Simulated scan of single mutants.
Amino acid sequence: MTTIDVRPTPSPRTRLRLTRRGRRALASVTALPAVVAVSIAVISGGGALASSEAGAPQGSFTSVTVMSGDSLWTIAEEVAPQADPRDVVDAIIRLNALGSGQLDAGQTLAIPAEYATES
């Protein structure tokens, strides 16, 4: 009777070798998320600077300086007590191109003249 050796023979170990083309492809795939992130940041952040819109006409607004503790709501109630504060806050945000309601003490805000004349 003959016996057959059934043990698996180990396959030879090889190192992964990348060709020049493979290294370029790997670098491109790896850099792609960074390129996309920078592109989005440039596109979304530069919109206001690249706008072709003209600014507000001179004399169509007055300005106020934000004091400590002020909010858009309190400023709206102060400059236009007869108007709906929601409308005034919206107009202030649009005129000043504010991204959020965060205000800093000492910041100067433009107030639409239509509301500034009511106070």
Rank of each mutant, 00 (worst) to 15 (best):
N96Y: 10
A56H: 15
T9N: 14
R24K: 07
T65D: 13
L109Q: 01
I111W: 01
A91Y: 01
R86G: 08
G46F: 00
A41M: 05
A54L: 10
P81F: 10
G47R: 00
A113I: 09
R7N: 08
V38A: 10
S119W: 06
R15E: 03
A56L: 14
L103I: 11
L18E: 11
E118Q: 11
A97Q: 10
A48L: 13
P8D: 03
G99C: 08
A116F: 00
T74I: 05
L98N: 05
W73G: 04
L72P: 02
I43P: 04
T62D: 12
S60Q: 08
L18C: 14
S60H: 12
G47S: 05
P10W: 09
T108R: 14
G106V: 05
Y115C: 00
E53S: 13
L18R: 01
A116V: 02
R20P: 12
W73I: 09
A56S: 14
L95C: 03
T2G: 15
D5F: 12
R23H: 06
L72K: 14
L95H: 01
A56E: 15
A76K: 09
P8C: 01
V38R: 00
L16D: 07
P57T: 11
P57F: 06
R7V: 12
T108Y: 04
T9Q: 12
T14P: 01
R21H: 12
A56D: 11
R7A: 10
Q107I: 14
V79M: 13
Q58G: 04
V36D: 05
A31L: 12
P8H: 10
L16Y: 08
V6K: 05
T14V: 02
L103P: 02
S100R: 10
Q82V: 15
D70C: 02
R20I: 15
S52M: 05
I93W: 01
G99R: 15
V29C: 07
D70T: 09
D84C: 14
S51M: 07
T74F: 04
A105K: 03
D90P: 03
L32M: 12
G46Q: 03
S51E: 01
I92E: 00
S100A: 06
S71G: 11
A37H: 02
R23P: 02
D5G: 09
A97R: 15
S44T: 14
L49V: 04
R7E: 06
S119I: 12
Q82H: 08
T108A: 02
T3V: 13
I111Y: 03
L49G: 06
T65H: 08
A31Y: 00
V29P: 00
W73P: 01
R86Y: 03
Q107H: 10
L18P: 04
A27N: 06
I43M: 11
T14C: 11
E78W: 06
I4H: 05
L49Q: 06
T117A: 14
A25R: 11
F61V: 11
A105V: 06
E114N: 06
A34F: 03
V64E: 09
Q82C: 06
Q58E: 04
D104T: 07
T3S: 15
D90M: 12
R23A: 03
R24W: 10
L95E: 07
R24I: 15
V29F: 07
P57L: 11
P8Y: 07
G106T: 12
G106E: 00
S39E: 13
P81S: 08
Q58I: 12
L18V: 14
Q82N: 05
S60R: 10
L103K: 00
